[in-house]
Write a protein that binds this DNA or RNA. Sequence first.
DNA 1: CTGAAAGCGCTTACAG
DNA 2: CTGAAAGCGCTTACAG
Lengths: 380, 380
Amino acid sequence: MAPLRPAAPRVLRITDLSYTYHGADRRSSEGACVASVRHEGPAESAGPARPTSRDVARRAGVSQATVSLVLRDKWHGRVSPGTADAVRAAARDLGYRPNLAARSLRLGRTRTALLVVPALTNEYFARVHTGAARVAAEHDFGMVLYPSPELAAPAPDPFDSARAALDGVIASSMAVEALAALRSGGLPLVMLDSDPEGSEATVNLDIADGMRRIVEHLVGLGHRRIAHVTAAVDSWTFHARARALSDALSGTPAALVHTERADLTVTGGLHAASRALSVTPRATALVCDDDVLAAGACKAVRRLGLRVPGDVSVTGFDDLSLATAVEPELTTVRLPAEEIGATGMRALLAVLEGRPPDTGVLPVSLVRRDSTGPPAAFTG
Amino acid sequence: MAPLRPAAPRVLRITDLSYTYHGADRRSSEGACVASVRHEGPAESAGPARPTSRDVARRAGVSQATVSLVLRDKWHGRVSPGTADAVRAAARDLGYRPNLAARSLRLGRTRTALLVVPALTNEYFARVHTGAARVAAEHDFGMVLYPSPELAAPAPDPFDSARAALDGVIASSMAVEALAALRSGGLPLVMLDSDPEGSEATVNLDIADGMRRIVEHLVGLGHRRIAHVTAAVDSWTFHARARALSDALSGTPAALVHTERADLTVTGGLHAASRALSVTPRATALVCDDDVLAAGACKAVRRLGLRVPGDVSVTGFDDLSLATAVEPELTTVRLPAEEIGATGMRALLAVLEGRPPDTGVLPVSLVRRDSTGPPAAFTG
DNA sequence: CTGAAAGCGCTTACAG
DNA sequence: CTGAAAGCGCTTACAG
């Protein structure tokens, strides 16, 4: 690890640190010391303790219950408008924020959902998060993210790690072995892009249709020998891609001539594609499980002195921004990532309200770009 | 929005839904109904209520306080080993998990930190998260992520959105206007890659040194006319990059001949680089604020019928996986993303414990690849 | 229209 | 070695 160049340490203001301390031995300080200081004068605003609804009540001259009623907007017909205004003014003056731990404890729910994704390094999951968080916000829900460090790692425990109190969980594209840990949480669970047999509520992408469209496209261009670069990741979505590809090829004049597993990185794609292209007779098209693998595959083609798509066509999956960052731009399957996140959050809300979740399969589309073309020998 | 193809809705098991209900009117059900059922027999295991420490105590035949002592591992010398074993067995049998909201309320802290990042779409932040979460886990801290939806959006309120109770906040590369919202939370705050004047505790990257190395490299290759493709993002790190570039160029034979602002996307980089290259006399090297911009810049060069690096050299910043996904692979500055995350979390832990945080500046390094070379006309 | 009280589930001094 | 009790800050029936 590189050495740290020290900079002059900064002194923290006591107000910044105070939050830390007031919990440690709150019992003594709160009851005996701080509370009394607070009553004695200006220490109130400079004091270390975070204001509670009691403080707001005291300042507004009302009971603590009235503060709660007003701030939760349940005061109409129960508290006079003048009193309500006084409470809001006091809360504003003190910078009051309700203690969410206390609220959660009282209510038994938190209006917070956890999104579990295999890794943050993929733009796809960032988009899933965006869609889910948008719907969550529309329903006054918070959204917390747990990146399960490694798909291959021993089953993680998101309920220990993301310590937030949670109402429910959305998990996307998890490894098979991670599912048990998720289920053990006992929370309502919605799975995205996962085995529909394995879970109560699932929102999926039409992976099979995506592969079918790729095959149609390649076969239509004249390709007859196709190799598959699969992601060496043990999750349903990649198993589904492999199955869908071989299903889609049956009944066409084209054949799957080789399959090669790859680490889900550019380098992984490069190595796997190199191996796949060393098989003779050589495939004229490489179907890759992911845009990242496709980017690596394109590099492999060039390192062999061949061209994309002149000698070898390459297809991706996902339509990440990477697909248009490389040249040639990738022909790929666009996954509606934001939409699956949004639909997943809606399904979770339904489960939480006791309604049947609107699970289903979201359509995908083929994006034709420049990494595919007719095979060199093809005269059709 | 594309239509949803409906799938057969699945019926959820009651045990999955139960968690939802037990909070809504827990008072009546818990006190009157469920608790009594629980005592009457097998309803205990099938019952909807999540077990509490009281349930564990009842099963183990001890007081509720003893359960807490044992499970928090504070029982040595206070509880007999046999009793401790009985408590652990009972907890296991019931699948007991402590209610974190209650624990947080009681302790006044949560051992949870919030990481605020401008966007999830960037691999850099994923790596920062990885580093921070690793250190957090080593100290039995949880880590929760809040992607501030848009750098340019009205100041977000992470404390409303990430509803978890939090002990502190780490914020990376935030827009200037987002800082006020962060500070208003009143929580201990560590800033990463941010203005050291603007915050109490800051961990930074040696951005200036990175730019200096790029300039040395380019000037050494013979470049004399350099253009800068800046990210149109109002955050300290990009202001720092601009300042560092012009500082580094002064005193060299090279000049900054043009600056062009770009949206932080491949397309943004492409457009900005096109504009920059239309200025005459043309720059022989494009210094880009980010690898994503550099990828776009390379495309722009080729669209003008020029080659990288033969006619125009291009440099990036960050060393994302994108840097080696494109061809030619990018010469760029590698930022120790995981390390800044880890150092930031260590600084936050220090603040929380009242120690002076180990803030500082982390070194960066230049990675020479294939997107830079001597300028065409150079005969040095 | 307003207040006093109960209780969510936990942790920890304190008393035995 | 073990238990009874207080209290974290909040929400919501309930009584006036």
